[in-house]
């Protein structure tokens, strides 16, 4: 079976126990996606599947035939950074950097979700359009833990990208 990873077709014939995360890191050499807890509690392994953010540790590679996977390597490169990557650098949105690829993939999809009008747990009126306040960003990004505690700068970086996109 085949998957499309960052626009490139990859074959998968391995053990069905292989998580999408292990397939990306071990078999595709895409080590930008990080393994933190391996149990869906930290968000370090966040990737995009058909544009939606998921925890790649809690899904099997074999379940993703013909799906389009985007990892941090597919969002930007050191020479041509995605606006979120540039904003994280500008705002010091990290210390050790281990959670950063997951934070950025998650933020990319989170901005798309907000654009599509999805509400969150802190949205006041479920039928009105939600403004992406810092409180909204914190709630929507709560699936990505940062043990260095760079949250304030992460929120600033995401806010800047949201403002620049206007």
């Amino acid at each position: 079976m085949k998957l499309a990873i960052n626009g490139t077709t990859q074959g998968f014939e391995g053990d069905p126990r292989t998580s999408l995360l292990d397939f990306l890191r071990r078999d595709c050499g895409l080590t930008g996606t990080k393994k933190g807890c391996d149990h869906g509690q930290c968000g370090a392994c966040t990737v995009l599947v058909n544009g939606q953010r998921i925890n790649s540790c809690l899904t099997l590679a074999v379940m993703h035939e013909d799906d389009e996977i985007t990892t941090i390597e597919g969002l930007g490169t050191p020479q041509d950074m995605h606006p979120l990557q540039a904003a994280f650098v500008d705002h010091d949105g990290y210390q050790c950097g281990y959670c950063t690829p997951g934070q950025i993939c998650s933020a990319k999809a989170m901005l798309d979700e907000a654009q599509a009008g999805w509400p969150s747990a802190v949205t006041g009126d479920l039928t009105a359009e939600a403004e992406l306040t810092p409180e909204e960003i914190r709630e929507r990004m709560s699936g990505n833990l940062c043990r260095c505690g760079a949250y304030s700068n992460i929120v600033d970086a995401i806010t800047q990208v949201k403002e620049d996109a206007r």
Partner: peptide, 9 residues
């Protein structure tokens, strides 16, 4: 409940 990533799956 859960997180954006988990609710997507």
């Amino acid at each position: 409940g859960a997180s954006g990533q988990l609710r997507n799956k």
